[in-house]
Nucleic acid binder design. Sequence first.
DNA 1: CGCCCTTTGAAGAAG
DNA 2: CTTCTTCAAAGGGCG
Length: 268
Amino acid sequence: MAPMITPSFSLVPPTFNIQMNLMNPMAMQAMTPRTQLDANSLTGFHTNAPMVPFPEAMKAKSSFLIDTILSAGQKNPINQNHKKENHIKKPLNAFMLFLKENRKTLIEENGYDEMSSGVMNKELGRRWQKLTDDEKQPYFELAKIEKERHKGKYPEWSAKDNLKKSKKYNPAQKVGKMCRAQLGNKDRSKWCKYCLRKQKCILSRILSQIAQTHDEETASEISHDNPESSSSIETTPIDSFPNQVSITLQEQEENLDNSEVEEGGPKS
DNA sequence: CGCCCTTTGAAGAAG
DNA sequence: CTTCTTCAAAGGGCG
């Protein structure tokens, strides 16, 4: 059953109606200002906008288009007076443009007008995933153009400017404290031997081992139909796990060391 | 008032 | 190169 584009929600946004392929001149209709398109799309009547070759025309019109899309929402992309002064926001990516463009459409649908943004974004995320690459293409093109505009307007700006200074980036904070990630080069002497060898950290190995054990247990659960065996592993929060591991790090390392020796030889 | 939630993608950090 | 985090939008909810 091929999923058809239903009247209830057009996968093709008002701004990009008709043809999604930007290399197609028909797509130039997509560059028609949204106010006109909205009215047209609601009545099923499409714009009579003249066809102009792409991408030159698109670039020419893109500025207006982006402005229209961006102004569709309440917030101004370039800081206005909310939050810090001089805060230059990131340019919108393709999905964000899609969100902005389709949120209104979704609100107009019954059932979505009372939903929270979180729920709406979930739905729009699902619909985004259903789009084909060709259908997403206009949004990527727009995002690219907006990025260029942004760069032209704020040549000195970098995404890192918007990173919170208070929050320090720590790649291990969610996964758990890996030796190298946690201790850094200063405490190299405290690294596990795997980190010293620039190999996968001991913690990763333990996690993999447990995941494997879990898979085996799950398999045996199915065969034995024993609900109680489900377990400590499944109910153990992944975030708290690294702490438990770290306590027995030495012990685990030794165990793994032994098993590694076994692995080294021809495994049965 | 400001953060959270919820989505995807871009960019940057760190190993 | 890989993996991970943060931030873009929106607006109701909550402390």
